[in-house]
Each structure stands twice: as structure tokens, then as C-alpha cells.
């Protein structure tokens, strides 16, 4: 069950519109659109672009190494990273989008902490939530399994061992 989705993009990476590859491709496309907007912004708002480029380094790094299903790592890291970057970029806009202020912002470690701190929270969520979810699902499966075995025993009691076929 878990193997098929991983295999589909591996076998046909070019077919982004494939049944199970579609969502991943769609999100990838969205990212590229984001990059395109940033590219255009780079022309008109160069200071903000420079700040954003610096701020999105963790997301870009994650995106390049992410092999998770549906690029959930990139989404988790990127969404919180984007929140931090957006906060700094908004400050830049409020100061008139000047290059010197952009440089000033980049020199302040607190701003880097704000921009990259979201990444850390995203990574923390990625580290903590999956084992908890796995444990919960395992428990549910084990409970179901027990119930299934009990039902089978009941069937054997009624129909005898021959019912096993």
C-alpha cells in the first residue's frame, strides 16, 4: 500500500499528470509559479527579493532533498519558513523598500532567527508528529486485528475447523 505511490513518480517522473503523481506535480508547479513571481519581483522589488532569497534558503534546501510523499516535508518546512520571511519582507515594505534597509535587516541575527525559526518549528513538527501518528494507527490496527481474530474464532466454533478451507 505504501509502496505504490513511491514507485509511480520514480517510474515515470516526466508524467506529472499521472494518477497518483498529479498532486505532487501540482504542488511543484505551484512552487515554480511562486519562483516566477519572485523572479518578477526581483526586477521591481530587488531589496525584498534579496531578503526573501536569504530567508527561503532552508525551504529551497528541503525542496531539493525532499523525497517524502506529496513533498510534505517541503510543505511543513516551507509554510512556516514563508511566515517568517513574510514578516521581515512586510517590515521592508513599510520602510519603503530601500536596499540599505534591506541590508540592515539582513545584518540583524534576530531577523534571520525569525525567518529560519519557522523552519525549525516545521522540522520539529515533522520529527514529533509522525511517530505519534504511527503509534496511534498501530494501536488501532492491533485492536482491529484482535477483533478480527475473535470473529474468526467464533466462525470456527460455529462451522468447525473445515471453514478455514
Amino acid at each position: 500500500m505504501g509502496k505504490a505511490p513511491a514507485k509511480v513518480p520514480a517510474k515515470s517522473p516526466a508524467k506529472g499528470k499521472g494518477a497518483k503523481g498529479a498532486p505532487a506535480g501540482g504542488k511543484g508547479k505551484g512552487l515554480w509559479v511562486s519562483f516566477a513571481i519572485l523572479g518578477i519581483g526581483a526586477v521591481f522589488v530587488l531589496p525584498a527579493t534579496i531578503v526573501a532569497l536569504g530567508g527561503f534558503i532552508p525551504t529551497i534546501a528541503t525542496m531539493l532533498t525532499d523525497k517524502s510523499r506529496g513533498r510534505s516535508m517541503t510543505v511543513a518546512v516551507g509554510s512556516l519558513n514563508m511566515t517568517g520571511v513574510a514578516y521581515i519582507v512586510i517590515q521592508l515594505f513599510q520602510k519603503g523598500m530601500r536596499m540599505d534597509y534591506a541590508m540592515l535587516l539582513l545584518q540583524d541575527p534576530l531577523n534571520w532567527f525569525i525567518m529560519w525559526g519557522g523552519t525549525a518549528i516545521g522540522l520539529a513538527l515533522l520529527t514529533l508528529i509522525p511517530p505519534v501518528v504511527a503509534q496511534v494507527l498501530t494501536s488501532i490496527s492491533e485492536y482491529k486485528l484482535q477483533k478480527m481474530k475473535s470473529n474468526q474464532a467464533e466462525i470456527r466454533k460455529i462451522w468447525g475447523e473445515d471453514v478455514k478451507g
Binding site: 500500500m1 505504501g2 510534505s72 510543505v75 511543513a76 515533522l126 508528529i129 509522525p130 511517530p131 504511527a134
Partner: peptide
């Protein structure tokens, strides 16, 4: 597998929600 298939997407959703 459970962690990857169910845990990571949930973490992503929570991240998006917090964001």
C-alpha cells in the same frame, strides 16, 4: 511506513495551519 504515509502529511497540514 505509517509515520511517512500518515504522520508526515499530518505534520505538513499542522505546519500550514500554524502558518
Amino acid at each position: 511506513m505509517l509515520a511517512e504515509q500518515a504522520g508526515q502529511p499530518l505534520a505538513a497540514v499542522i505546519s500550514v495551519g500554524i502558518s
